[in-house]
Amino acid sequence: MCATSARAADTLCDPSTTNCRTQLLTLIQQEQVGIDVGFWFMQDSRYMTEIVKRFQAGVPVRVLIDPRANASYPGNDQMIAGFQSAGIPLRKRTASGILHWKMMLFAGQNTVEFGSANYSPDAFVPAADYTNYVAETVYVTDDPAVVNSFKTKFDDSWTDTSSFANYANVGALTRTYPTYPIDSSLNFPPAQDYAARAIGRYNAETLQLDAIMFRITDQRHTNAIINAHNRGVPVRLIIENDEYRDPNYMWDPWNVDRLYAAGVPLRWRGHAGENHEKLVLL
């Protein structure tokens, strides 16, 4: 008989009513082999504190950061400084665009957490169930194909000398994991064009297209969704109020208005907090 390691159920945590931070902190506290972290910004010191504790206990840690977030997200600089002063290796993105990852990988538990939620105090925990929360997708999985894909992509970024540079405490740039194939269900921009892939799915849909989108700035999505609506596919879209009113992102109201004018049913957030989800359901 052949025995296979048991897998825990995948978790899609809903911070409208669930404390998703507890699960993530537990994963950090239980890790014995290695932790890899990549984020756009971090403001909740609980994560930094627990990661530093594991590093001090001898668990290897690597962190990918983007200090360009400091100007817009107070406290991110303090989290980076905390990792740096603890001696944790940090590399920073230097290429155009931003490092928009929100992920933690736990090598000993063969588990990865990723999704739309930044590591802020309000993204993982509701202020009040169902009435004051940040709508997010927080996904935790030990699916080997997904975990191994993130291992390879993290190693790719860690050893990349074109788009990343050393920030602090970095020795030789070496890969930690074997190089695995990337699961075809995943998409890693900017190396892969998410819009091109998504539009192919929109164009093939015949039954129902539902989406929750924080911000819409690429008209390719809008065009394809309008086309789906025009050919009779039922479409429903939930958007974020504040993005529609934000003068810094005028492409969002332009795209939303086009969807409205085309007759696509639209709703927006009715609860306090924010709709930060990015979800398409086909």
Rank of each mutant, 00 (worst) to 15 (best):
R197L: 11
I35F: 05
Y133C: 07
T206Q: 05
A165H: 00
R68M: 00
I212D: 13
M79R: 10
A195E: 04
G263L: 11
V112D: 05
A196H: 03
D10G: 09
Y167N: 01
T111C: 07
Q78R: 00
S116K: 05
V146K: 07
Y47T: 02
M103C: 10
A95V: 09
R245P: 02
S96P: 03
A117M: 08
Y249S: 10
G115F: 00
L209W: 10
P253N: 02
P253Y: 01
A191R: 15
R197F: 07
V147F: 07
A195P: 01
N19K: 08
G232M: 08
W254R: 15
A95M: 06
A135M: 07
F39M: 11
P253C: 03
A135T: 05
D242N: 15
N227E: 13
P190N: 08
A3Y: 12
G97V: 06
H229E: 08
L90S: 01
S163L: 11
V125T: 10
P181S: 04
V134R: 14
R54T: 07
R54C: 03
R46Y: 04
N169L: 06
E240W: 14
Q30K: 06
T222L: 04
G82I: 02
A224L: 10
S85D: 07
P181V: 08
Q208W: 11
V233F: 09
P265M: 01
G82M: 01
V280M: 10
I212G: 14
D257Y: 12
Q32I: 03
D10M: 09
R68V: 09
E31P: 06
P181G: 08
A135V: 05
P121T: 08
A8P: 08
P67V: 14
Q30V: 01
M48L: 14
I216D: 09
A128F: 11
Q109I: 01
L90E: 02
E243H: 15
T17S: 12
A224R: 12
K92W: 06
Y73L: 02
I65T: 15
S45M: 13
G87Y: 01
P60G: 05
S184N: 06
P178N: 02
R46D: 12
M1F: 14
I199H: 01
P265A: 00
E240T: 12
D129K: 15
V140N: 10
P74Y: 03
R220I: 07
R93W: 07
E136A: 00
R267C: 08
H271A: 10
I225W: 02
A69L: 09
